[in-house]
Design a protein around this nucleic acid. Sequence first.
DNA 1: GACTATTTGTCCGTATGTATT
DNA 2: GAATACATACGGACAAATAGT
Lengths: 258, 258
Amino acid sequence: MTFERVRPVRAYERVVEQIEEHVLRGQLKPGDRLPSERTLMEQFGVSRSTIREALRVLESNGLVRSRHGDPGGPEILPFSPTTLHKSVTRLVRTDQVGLGELVQFRMLLDGSANLLAAKLATDAEIAEMDIALARMESTIGDGYVQFSQADLEFHDAVARASRSTLIQVCSDVVRGVVLSLITQKIADSPDQQALMRKSLSHHAEVLEAVRDRDGERAARLARQALYAYYAEYVSDAEQPLLEALLEDDAPPPPSFAT
Amino acid sequence: MTFERVRPVRAYERVVEQIEEHVLRGQLKPGDRLPSERTLMEQFGVSRSTIREALRVLESNGLVRSRHGDPGGPEILPFSPTTLHKSVTRLVRTDQVGLGELVQFRMLLDGSANLLAAKLATDAEIAEMDIALARMESTIGDGYVQFSQADLEFHDAVARASRSTLIQVCSDVVRGVVLSLITQKIADSPDQQALMRKSLSHHAEVLEAVRDRDGERAARLARQALYAYYAEYVSDAEQPLLEALLEDDAPPPPSFAT
DNA sequence: GACTATTTGTCCGTATGTATT
DNA sequence: GAATACATACGGACAAATAGT
């Protein structure tokens, strides 16, 4: 017979648990209001400070927002990936996760998104990708910031067409963190124009594969495009992480001289 | 001239920012202790309640831990992906993602994990998978719970071998949610034994592919294994989501009669 | 093992500024 | 503009837990 170590449970934690459960179960929907702090303190039978500590935690987790003096009480927020973003950013800043792993994960997500998009996208969704691609082309002269924005829209359109919320959100978060890490380096690059043109042609190839409903090709091209764009910023030690996602993709042409 | 809307900054947020910065910059290392709450309240020039709210937030973000009565003061924690885990958990629990999408995402993650494991795993890591597989076999008679535990260890070993923290965390979370949704249905199934034996042989095939360093095959088999195991619990409407990840995997044998 | 000093967990009261009606 | 309800922040208090003597 073994006993588990008991962790002392503090009052504010119980409050957090209960409110969090209500929100996650959908019994409290975004836009709904929590009772005022004074009411909450009666309902939970705890002091004001305890309620406040609980609210601060919920607030930091992006579940509620309380505004100074709002008679409505704390507001239930819609889900937003900001906390995800913060978590990943922390992992990166503490060197738990390197740029290489981030790019690798992006290759996975974007490849999968394209695979699914090729199979599931409607004509309207493909049209959206067309528009985004056209915008990329037209912004090449306007500078990297505009181009990057259009590029973002393209990937977003693909992610939406994949029909997967998880892929959409994860892609969004990872892309944001990657860009925050290297956007400066690209902006400093002397041959931005060349980079953008290369990126544009890669995207065009991917879209063509999606249009042909060739998921495997779209996925492979998408991975290669990301590799071509980001690999030079990844340390040598992490290169194998990226290459592992490419090797089998482009099998060498059969050698006739064995 | 345009002015931005000013978000009122609360006292505890400033405290959180400062401490967080110190931790993330490495000026405070894991194991170090923060000053006591009373000292902090002098240093920051705020009341104790404010300090406490800040500490609760930092605690919920996994950066510090304060124990009741510890004269050493709050302790700086080593970095762990627990907050990422929490965020992803909320994501999959909130946004009404269906079982189909969850299984689909698991197929993506587990497929990728096996692909990477096949290329990167050390012999020791493959040995761990061997052990987990053996445990699966030996627990087949002990019931579904034990088997599921061993199965979990197998997938965990694969995820570890993929060298990707992001894959590990996401896999862990998604797997947990999927299991919580259908574990009951499987437990009620009359032919558990048959299910387990089938699952076992699938896993053995995957491991063999990993051992052969054939990443593509390992990934394909892993996706197929998950599909075979979970597809029947997914609604008809969501079936295409899963099939989209299989179709091209096993191209039909060339038909000689066209 | 018991005692003591320190610290955290929790509570209460109060003053101040804010958002809504 | 005034009244009301509310959140923010402060300060003081006591109990419970911890670590060292």
